[in-house]
Simulated assay, not measured.
Amino acid sequence: MSRLLVVVDMQKDFIDGSLGTREAEAIVNNVKKKIEEYQAAGEDVIFTLDTHENHYMDTQEGKNLPVLHCVKGTAGWELADALKEIPGRRFEKNTFASKAAGEYAASGSYESIELIGLCTDICVISNALLIKAFLPETPVLVDSSCCAGVTPESHENALKAMKMCQVTIL
């Protein structure tokens, strides 16, 4: 049995683009180091990519978060420069959680599944709870030093909510 690392939405628009934050910029090196640790141990690493089209503002998400971001094919949609050459399966998603990444996690026999990335309070929590629903007996972990939220407060709130849902916070 091995572990799975899910790298959530480490894309330029969430780091230093239209929805970027200092906190997101600050975790890039931690994320890269964590990925390298998993790969050095021969363990699986997958990535989710928030993926929107130009009509994003007409979607429910666009009406509630009216900031165009992660439009497929744009620079903001790309993974951070420090991560984009790292091998690993990519799962595009047009909503907060990736059903395909959850199904991928459920198709393996992982001893644990760890999530890192952006944003703690939207996509990380959504993916953690989705994976927990697929695999209620598999430990799901989130490394808080490799995550950032929309705000530091919402990051902390998301960590507390995940802990209450039996996600282990590192």
Results as ranks from 00 to 15, higher is better:
residue 1 M to K: 11
residue 3 R to G: 12
residue 4 L to Q: 03
residue 5 L to T: 10
residue 8 V to D: 02
residue 8 V to S: 05
residue 10 M to R: 02
residue 12 K to P: 02
residue 15 I to D: 01
residue 16 D to W: 12
residue 17 G to L: 11
residue 20 G to A: 13
residue 23 E to N: 13
residue 27 I to E: 02
residue 29 N to G: 03
residue 32 K to F: 00
residue 37 E to I: 14
residue 37 E to R: 12
residue 51 T to D: 08
residue 54 N to L: 14
residue 59 T to G: 07
residue 60 Q to R: 08
residue 60 Q to D: 12
residue 62 G to Y: 13
residue 62 G to L: 12
residue 65 L to P: 00
residue 65 L to G: 00
residue 65 L to A: 00
residue 66 P to Q: 11
residue 67 V to F: 07
residue 68 L to V: 15
residue 69 H to I: 09
residue 71 V to F: 10
residue 78 E to M: 13
residue 81 D to A: 15
residue 81 D to C: 02
residue 85 E to D: 15
residue 87 P to Q: 13
residue 87 P to L: 06
residue 87 P to C: 06
residue 88 G to P: 06
residue 93 K to V: 08
residue 94 N to Y: 01
residue 95 T to K: 13
residue 95 T to Y: 10
residue 98 S to V: 07
residue 100 A to Y: 02
residue 103 E to V: 05
residue 106 A to F: 10
residue 107 S to P: 01
residue 121 D to W: 06
residue 123 C to V: 04
residue 129 L to G: 06
residue 137 E to K: 12
residue 139 P to M: 12
residue 139 P to T: 10
residue 140 V to Q: 03
residue 143 D to W: 11
residue 144 S to I: 09
residue 145 S to F: 04
residue 147 C to N: 05
residue 154 S to M: 08
residue 154 S to K: 14
residue 155 H to F: 11
residue 155 H to V: 07
residue 158 A to E: 07
residue 163 K to P: 00
